[in-house]
Amino acid sequence: MSFQLNEEQIAIKALAKDFATNEIAPFARKYDEDEAFPLEIMQKLHEYGLSNLAIPEKYGGPGIDKISHALIVEEISTACAGVATSLEANSLSSYPILVGASEELKKKYLTKLTKEGNYAAFALTEPGAGSDVSSLATVARRVGNEYILDGEKCFITNASHAEFFVVLARIKEESASSKYTAFIVDRDLPGVKIGEKEKKLGLRASDTASVIFEEVRVPAANRIGEEGEGFKIFMKGLMNARPMVGAQALGIAQAAFDASTSYAKERKQFGKPISQLQAIQFMLADMAMKIEASRLLVHKAVDLLHRGTPSMKHASYAKCFASDTAMEVTTDAVQIFGGYGFIREYPVEKYFRDAKIMQIYEGTNQIQRVVIAKELLS
């Protein structure tokens, strides 16, 4: 067991930190205020080899280990979690393809992301089906060599920019049961429509919109796996993705802690820096402990992925604990800044807004606890 990064991981972390500091942080506030997709930053990430982090080298990806992947996500998130979310949308969309698609589909669609620099979107959530996947209303019916897809997906990251969507739908059977099946749906197919961009509390630099499918004819060759395997494929994909949400949350928490520490050393009350007040010291100590515990949980989960022994339980540990920590740390950061923490001129209010969604997307933290309990009791 080692708690040290190797030389390559240290170099990757340094590269990501340098990029985040120089190419993202100076512009993060503007993208947040304008609620604009960070196209220039995304293109630079691609040029630097810091995109499509989950894709193996054989398909044009960086082929990095999972710890390195998490390190990059954390560093990018310290500068702007909205950029990190936009970046990781391609990874999230890649997982079902890597888990269950044919070699032909992998070569065709993963290289669209790596070599052509395109974007993809993971389309699972629906207006009436968030945590309860069994309520999915998007349906597919087989007609010859095609499936006809009807339904709506909501809260889809990168929807407005995606070249294709990885979609979970259900195929109704005569017995009234359903086979959950995964598909790759090209954006330019007739009947694919993109809704208006959502106005969000946080992650304003990321694009979020609905995707509507109206009688969309999807080639049967674009099915991922067999009929009925879609739910399993998507859950395996989320098992890979959830630790990286933990890494995003970790980056937000670390940034909030760093800002709070610097501010506490500079801000004077009662004739001395507030960092000398025990009440502030205890807050900083608790923040630091929880961040360190989150980092260990995230790295444990991604190490298991890297070793080929993925754990649903550890993925949920990492995502749930790190995102709860991010919310606690950013709340305390606003408190340490006092009235200034409530002002947009200062960074912690953005960290606070960005942190909240970490407890919600890719499985709410209540669902993570359900998953954990099920694993413990099985």
Rank of each mutant, 00 (worst) to 15 (best):
M1E: 09
F3N: 14
L5V: 09
L5Q: 10
L15K: 15
K17R: 15
F19K: 05
A20P: 02
P26C: 11
P26E: 15
K30Q: 12
Y31E: 02
Y31I: 00
D32W: 10
A36N: 00
F37R: 09
E40N: 05
M42A: 07
Q43K: 15
K44Y: 03
L45W: 02
G49A: 01
S51W: 08
S51V: 05
N52M: 02
A54F: 13
G60S: 01
G61P: 10
G63L: 01
S68P: 07
E74Y: 04
I76K: 11
S77I: 02
A81M: 02
G82V: 01
T85F: 02
L87Q: 00
P96I: 08
E103K: 15
Y109N: 01
K112Y: 15
L113V: 01
G117W: 10
L124W: 12
L124M: 11
E126I: 09
G128Y: 09
A129E: 07
V133C: 06
S134W: 13
A137E: 15
A140D: 05
A140Y: 06
R142G: 06
R142H: 04
R142V: 05
G144M: 04
N145L: 02
E146D: 08
D150Q: 03
F155E: 09
F155W: 15
N158D: 13
N158V: 10
F165W: 00
V167F: 04
A169M: 08
R170D: 10
S175I: 08
S175G: 00
A176Q: 14
S177D: 11
A182V: 12
F183K: 03
R187S: 07
D188I: 01
L201H: 11
G202D: 07
L203Y: 12
A205V: 03
S210N: 13
I212W: 03
E214H: 01
R217Q: 05
V218G: 03
N222E: 09
G228Y: 09
K232L: 14
I233F: 10
M235H: 10
M239C: 10
M239S: 10
A253G: 03
A255G: 12
A255I: 02
T261A: 14
K265S: 08
F270S: 07
K272Y: 07
P273G: 04
Q276Y: 06
Q276V: 11
L277A: 06
I280F: 10
Q281Y: 06
L284C: 02
L284T: 04
A285R: 15
A285C: 05
A285S: 11
D286P: 07
A288I: 05
A288V: 02
K300W: 11
A301K: 04
D303G: 15
D303A: 04
T309I: 09
S311A: 02
H314D: 14
A318N: 04
C320D: 11
F321T: 01
D332W: 14
A333D: 00
F337T: 00
I343Q: 12
R344V: 09
R344I: 09
Y351M: 06
F352Y: 15
D354F: 01
K356I: 14
M358K: 03
M358S: 11
N365Q: 07
Q366T: 14
A373K: 12
K374N: 12
L377P: 00
